[in-house]
Amino acid sequence: MKSLAELKAIKEKMKDKVVLREGSANIRIVVGMATCGIAAGARPVLNTLVEAINEGGLSDKATVTQTGCIGLCQYEPIVEVFEADKEKVTYVKMDADKAKRVVEEHIKGGKIVSEYTIGASK
């Protein structure tokens, strides 16, 4: 059974790390979580991204955040990748498997998965 003692142990472990991590990630992954995104399947996409980034040891490199409607509802679920000094990459019609591939190839490997981008889908 999960206990508050276990949560306390997490706190002890994390309290020093958190300060270090603030602002160190230079890639920001943003998932559209308005009604359109949620209905199209954004929740598993978001959760897969969070898991893949953290389990893959990439949390110092990238953060995953949620946003509202991006304005392209017909292309939801949408994932945007912002990286310092680079052009924004917009991935469209995402699902959990595509999200895993984006983390592996783009975030980890530095190579954009062009077939999932909005340019490829138009």
């Binding site: 059974m1 999960k2 508050l4 276990e6 949560l7 306390k8 997490i10 706190k11 472990k13 994390m14 309290k15 958190v18 969070v50 953290n54 949390s59």
Partner: peptide, 27 residues
């Protein structure tokens, strides 16, 4: 609010915390 009190400033969106919450609920 209870979780926040235990965490004393560690953010709730810390991955380990989110994982704990998920398991806490599932159990």
């Amino acid at each position: 609010r209870e979780i926040r009190e235990v965490l004393e400033g560690v953010p709730l969106d810390t991955y380990e915390v989110i994982k704990w919450i998920k398991e806490f609920l599932n159990e």
